[in-house]
């Protein structure tokens, strides 16, 4: 497990977010990846070809292993984003086999949530 030595944690204002549906608080300024790691949610995405779980590798924005779905927007690098109030972070499942062609496939998370969420 990852753990935090962040002694000032209590002084920094805390932010509420959900990671894979789990409610989590994180100090302001923390990266999304750190929040995930501390919550024990270290899997970031499915690899698109062999469909295996992957996790962050470099934590500095160069490997793109930490791409997750943030507020409905896929391919967001968790290690580069800071947590924001109300953020919804999800394990990314887009692979070569994902399809939204069937009329019953839900597209809601993918189209409706995206919009003004770039702030």
């Amino acid at each position: 497990m990852f753990r935090s030595l962040n002694d000032k944690e209590n002084q920094r204002s805390l932010i509420n977010l959900t990671i894979n549906g789990k409610l989590v608080t994180a100090p302001q300024g923390q990266t999304v990846w750190a929040a995930m790691a501390l919550a024990g949610e270290t899997s970031t995405r499915l690899s698109p070809v062999t469909l295996k779980a992957r996790s962050a590798y470099c934590a500095m924005g160069v490997c793109f292993e930490c791409m997750t779905e943030i507020n409905g927007m896929p391919n967001q690098q968790a290690c580069l984003f800071e947590v924001k109030e109300g953020m919804d972070i999800r394990f990314q499942e887009i692979t070569e086999q994902t399809s939204l062609l069937n009329p019953s496939d839900s597209v809601s998370t993918l189209t409706e949530n995206v919009g003004g969420n770039h702030d």
């Binding site: 698109p48 791409m67 896929p74 391919n75 887009i94 692979t95 070569e96 994902t98 399809s99 939204l100 062609l101 496939d105 993918l110």
Partner: peptide, 9 residues
């Protein structure tokens, strides 16, 4: 683009 769910054949 990066991979997207299949939406247009």
């Amino acid at each position: 683009t990066a991979r997207m769910p299949h939406f247009a054949t």
